[in-house]
Simulated assay, not measured.
Amino acid sequence: MAITAPPAARPAPVSPVRPRPERRGGNRVVFWIGLTVASVAFLYPFWWVLTASLKPRSQVFDNLVLPRNWAFANYLKIWDAAPVWTWFVNSVTVALAAAVAVTISSAMVAWAFAYYRFPGRNGWFGLVLATMMLPGAVTMIPVYLIWNSVGLATTQVPLWASNLFGSAFYIFLLRQFFLGLPRDLFEAARIDGVGHWGLFWRIAVPLCKPALIVTFVFELKASWADLLKPLIYLRDVELFTLPRGLKAISDRFGQAGEQQWEIVLAGSVITVLPMVVVFFLAQRHFIHGIATQGRKG
């Protein structure tokens, strides 16, 4: 008769160690203190510019948190001194055109690299990524000569038309998102008769909406704040964007002997404030897009 060993006793489950309530409360206090300090550090420069733009000229650099004498007339002066509304419309037009152009073009290129299998795909994609290693100063003169040869060097077209060819960073961003989509979904659509354009426009684009929003907001902000291109291409004051116009205001009112810094700072607030508003309006979609992109990557 065989003797069997008794079954081994299962180890008792180990209950997870939960932090004590007082420890969790202490960590939360430290977290909120650190968050408050960081928020103040990031917000103070903008608050300084905002309050300084509402001070008289003699009090601009007094570093007070609130003005002793409010000078709302500074904003009326800048509207009288420069065509700010025209510059604002130009900035909106250029920024929207640049953001739409780079979002659509980059999405199409990224979709091609993610879905289609063709010889040398990885090599071509590596070549696209390699263009990010080139500083903008390297291609600045050749690109200007190209636009000058077609007679568009003194217009607003170069500020946004280059985005029609996509951006390496956005192509990489969107390609990683497209790679996370189930390929079987597109194969089933092909069986149902959906064409190549339908796969991209009707299936891929709606599924990657969060990544497209991230791309659009990134480029909108970059184009809105761009000063280098307007400095190179724009000569006519009526074609200036807000950053280029702010540079002209700074050159005019920031010179020695005149130094009307309250007007320059008012122009800075007018330039920055629209992007602050856009971020708060698109905050939910923007954060969701960043989080989703992180999971897809």
Rank of each mutant, 00 (worst) to 15 (best):
F46T: 07
V269S: 04
T271S: 12
V143M: 13
N74P: 06
W224M: 01
C208T: 14
K209Q: 10
K229T: 04
R244S: 03
T36E: 00
R295M: 13
F240S: 01
P21D: 05
F172P: 04
V109A: 08
F118R: 01
N148R: 13
I263V: 14
I270Y: 09
W160N: 04
Q283W: 09
L66H: 00
V29G: 02
P11Q: 14
F113K: 05
A2F: 13
P230N: 08
G123P: 07
W111P: 03
V128Q: 03
S149I: 08
T4N: 06
W201D: 00
N74D: 05
T51H: 03
P142A: 08
P83N: 02
L127G: 11
P13E: 14
R284I: 09
T103Y: 10
R284M: 05
V102G: 03
A71D: 09
W201C: 05
P206V: 10
V157S: 04
A256S: 13
P6H: 07
Y116T: 06
Y116N: 04
L129N: 06
L220V: 01
Q156I: 12
L220F: 15
D236R: 09
M108E: 03
D192K: 05
W87G: 07
I33W: 11
P16H: 09
L239M: 07
R121G: 02
K209R: 15
G151M: 12
N63H: 12
L246F: 02
N122K: 08
W160R: 05
F186Y: 15
S250I: 09
L129F: 10
G151C: 11
W261M: 06
I191E: 10
V92S: 03
R295Y: 07
